[in-house]
Design a protein around this nucleic acid. Sequence first.
DNA 1: CAATTGCATGCCCTT
DNA 2: AGGGCATGCAATTGG
Length: 692
Amino acid sequence: MGVEVCMNKLCKDGSSGEWKKGWSLMSGGFAKLCNKCGLAYENSVFCDVFHRHEAGWRECSNCNKPIHCGCIVSRSLFEYHDSGGIGCVSCIKISHFCPDTEKSNRFTLSTKHNASDRYAERAGKGNLLQLCRTAEVGESSRWPHAQRDGMVSCNGPKSGEVKCQFNKEDRGYLNVMKHSSPLSMITTSKNNRPTWGETKNIDELSLKISLFQQEQQSHPLLTKQMKNGATMNLEANKGLISHERVGWPHADMKGKSQLLSRYWPRITNQELEKLSGDLKSTIVPLFEKVLSPSDAGRIGRLVLPKACAEAFLPPISQSEGVPLQFQDLKGNEWTFQFRFWPNNNSRMYVLEGVTPCIQALQLNAGDTVTFSRIEPGEKFVLGFRRATNSMDTQDAAASAHSNGILTKDTNLSGGTNILNSLEKKKTRNIGPKTKRLHIRSEDSIELRLTWEEAQDFLCPPPSVKPNLVTIEDQIFEEYDEPPVFGRRTITNTCQSSASEQLSPKEKENLLRTRKVSKKRKSVEKRKSMEPDKLSSLEALASAAILGDNLAEPGESLSAGATTKHPRHRPGCSCIVCIQPPSGQGKHKPTCTCVPCETVKRRFNTYMMRRKKNKSESSEAAAFQNDQMNSRDEADTSGGASGQDTSHSSDEGSLNEGQLEVVEPNVAGQLDLNCHPNHEDMEMDTCDKTDYD
DNA sequence: CAATTGCATGCCCTT
DNA sequence: AGGGCATGCAATTGG
């Protein structure tokens, strides 16, 4: 098909337009360009499913609309089939729910309500939601593989009817499937809630229904961390990282798939395979939970998320509950009492008797316990992940303390005492709830990114060569493999090595993220952020970027100036730092690699802005001169005297002087750390933070 | 008297 | 406004 219409008008410049076909690696991430405004579609990043649109676009035989348009808009709401394969949540769920295929691979769904629908209805979306049917994910296995793999679906334009179609010739789609995990997987980046306010036509309505289905069906409880626009926070980040991680729903979700994303298991496929191998069983990740102080405390009760408990654990009718067998990764077996308390006309599920296990595993508040199930059977596996930044960065000192004390050699009894005392200390140190939440909120702010920044988190899969496709005079890189989100895990404790592992682009983003953090911080509070606190927050952000596999806090990103600049740290990606001292390895002016293209693009943007700013500032200066003629010369000449001139850029508009500051610092080259669209911010930050 | 248990409270998030 | 959940706290139990 030709081009897709930019239906939700979320191009970066706010204009509507048409899409060029094909996902492309632009500016380091997969993005779609709006034909009209020429900019990447704001919501087009992160979707690693539909980068094969060139071959993969299909039209609904009913409405003739691109089937996956909704997936693009809602970004990354997709699912890997158990059998291999991939599809948008909406389509998959619809397909799962089709009990009978009609002749010629078509079928119509009957209306059915379930928990998801109830959520949807509660949300007050009325009849539109009659289209919203959810399926028990487990039912996916009822579909013949061939059908599932070839299945596409689309909402029909008529309310209450959803039609699906199989398209077995869809090679692109199948290509995408090849790589996918045999395990169910879902990824979301929760940013883009569909808007319902301004549906203008049936097509758009259809699209929005699709979006809403995905939202409601897949993640109805997703969450407020989703802010408008292309921002994301830690939670989103985690979700995105899960591109490589196994997430729910899994085969045994039994239709109770209404979990907050924070409870999704984030075990990587690799980890899962290893675990399955170690235990010589099939491990089905169920959910996970970050231990609260009370969970990890001596009280021995681990509060289970209600939805998880009801979805994955045996139903219990008596408050006393039932004992459940758990096995930890060391092979130890534990029995916990799974029970509930009545609570506000509801239930509060707890696992009792977890203290020995918590202590044996040396888990602390902030660590994450993962619940999996051994299949077949009813035995559960209790795994864990250490907090990458202990205590959620709230008490770095205590964290370091605990990490230092709780060595493997700590014997259990001694360890218990230490743990107990630490727990008490931690509970105290962790501070009041409001404070904790405040800090978390700040952290999430730290991690908000622009779409461009977020785009850079998507890297082409390693060792995969793109196919170059020219579409409407644009060269696109197409990949058969989905992009990889996030940075490579740095396991090397050597900082320099860690920084070497990062590509220039990765380094650039790392630093940029830090800059955004710093900028926000300085704007919000400018004054006092203690260095250790700051670094811990940065570490959290970095950990989020790097994935939660950082083995130890402070391992990779703790400070340490490079030899290039005192202020530059490992990971710094400015043009100065990424250049080898000898100048060797420098890219040629004709080089068209992504970093070079980025440099060129940014340079162009920078120059344009600079030109514009110059003209503006000269106009402003002329205007000021007119008005300020009466001022005495001392004021004029000593405008910056007595002040820290470095702060002059904080006040007033960007002026020529500021612009001039940058270039000499970088030996005539553009500072890549400075976002071209935010020079007024970045100049300030870059200059002072990194080049002073 | 300390530990445990069962429930209540209140904050925060979602709708 | 309602639900989820972390945690407080009184009641109970046991050494």
